[in-house]
């Protein structure tokens, strides 16, 4: 176990109960997007060295998806984003 992540449903839990779900991104409109922009959306990441907003899923728990801000330099969550399940 290393760091704890707070599930809006279950409270602080061992990180290995969760699945990382990617950086929160805006999906381009599929009708107007170009092939290159779509590839960028699919493959590129910001890899912020600092606070970034990302999706997490409580896989070995209640099955809630939630977005949190986490500091990638120390793995500490910053603010809880959404509270409802």
């Amino acid at each position: 176990m290393s760091f704890l992540l707070t599930c809006p449903n279950c409270g602080p839990r061992n990180i290995y109960e969760f699945r990382f779900g990617g950086e929160v991104k805006t999906r381009p409109d599929e009708n107007t997007v170009s092939a290159e922009d779509w590839a960028d959306y699919v493959y590129l990441s910001k890899n912020v060295c600092g606070v970034q907003k990302e999706w997490w899923y409580h896989a070995k728990g209640c099955g809630t998806w939630f977005a949190v801000e986490r500091d990638t330099r120390d793995n500490l969550p910053v603010v809880k984003e959404e509270n409802e399940g």
Binding site: R19, G21, W55, Y57, A59, G63, T64, W65, F66
Partner: peptide, 14 residues
């Protein structure tokens, strides 16, 4: 089965 659960839940949540 497991991934599907995750997958649908994600899009529904998003």
């Amino acid at each position: 089965a497991g991934n599907t659960l995750e997958w649908l839940a994600f899009h529904s949540k998003e």
